[in-house]
Design a protein around this nucleic acid. Sequence first.
DNA 1: TAGATTCTGTACCAAGGAGTACAATACCAA
DNA 2: TTGGTATTGTACTCCTTGGTACAGAATCTA
Lengths: 195, 195
Amino acid sequence: MSVGRPRRFDLDQALDKAMVVFWKHGYEGATLPELTEAMGINRPSLYAAFGNKEELFRRVVERYVSGPASYIQKALAQPIARAAIQQLLDSSIELLTSPGNPGGCLVLQGALVCGATAEPVRQELVAVRAAGLELIHERLKRARREGELPKDVDCADLARFVTAVVHGLSIQAASGATRKQLLRVAEVAMRAWPN
Amino acid sequence: MSVGRPRRFDLDQALDKAMVVFWKHGYEGATLPELTEAMGINRPSLYAAFGNKEELFRRVVERYVSGPASYIQKALAQPIARAAIQQLLDSSIELLTSPGNPGGCLVLQGALVCGATAEPVRQELVAVRAAGLELIHERLKRARREGELPKDVDCADLARFVTAVVHGLSIQAASGATRKQLLRVAEVAMRAWPN
DNA sequence: TAGATTCTGTACCAAGGAGTACAATACCAA
DNA sequence: TTGGTATTGTACTCCTTGGTACAGAATCTA
């Protein structure tokens, strides 16, 4: 603890509160009054602690990736590739429809499109999505090396398919689909698995 | 032509210009200066002709559904169900990656999430998406009646899967994926077709 | 206890948002 | 030509947005 008046709120707790707001309304749709209200702090405190709205959002995304969205790495760590993808879908659905937080995925609805000023934020989210795709791609390449996938399977195509399904599930969740419905979609999707 | 000073612009042309702006930046991200500039008219003309931003957007969505997005009905009219879905995916991809207009789908990026004031707009888009799902669902039920699908197939699940894939493709397109990449994703997706 | 330091809270600022008043203009009908 | 009508263009209004100045308050150090 350094000198000076101590901060009266917890940084991580405040980030979690901000996460919910951005998740629900997107980067542009989230207003500062809404953010400060949810975080339980006033505006100057927010600016002192996080810089500005954009930096706050980046911190939130970081936290989202290493927190709620960390199920991706966990799933892909499964020894059997097919089970890894299955678990990826299942745990995606669990997060997307978790009753405690807004439906859908922050990385999608944070800024799918936006006005000119938010363009850097959009670009960042595009990069985060690309990183997710790459994780899946790497896992599938490993599966093929290890003989779990036929040699004639294109791992890039399959990875992109899996990503597309996860994104599609996210949209459905954001549009009000139930967990049960999405789990059945995942079941159908798994029929595309090569054998 | 009624009395009074004649309008100096074409309503439908103006709507098409506005469509591109909303498509690219979303409902909230599109500003009135940007809209009027693209439409080649000034603000009072816009308000006189379309009411306000929200009504303009609704007109644009109508036009989008009955124009660019009408490929859906066209595809589903195919006599063979499998071919209908195949064509649905292919023509989706064609629109989503058409060089002339913004990547992705207006019905998704128009307002996936938003601030409080745009909530009615978001709801409308949710309804439009639900209508699309229903079209596919009906087509699949017909296919099952006609013996093209096994009786134990759940048409609702399959329809939702197809919808999710299309939405996933839209996200990918909005994130910079190429037409070729998406066509291969569609190929993978079709492997989930029941037989 | 005094000073340095950092956070909090009120109150403000400039910029940009959507929407409109009103005079000028262009057409039709008589 | 004249009057009625609807559009255009300039110039506004009001509100919300993100961001900040500054004084007061709370802590640590010496």
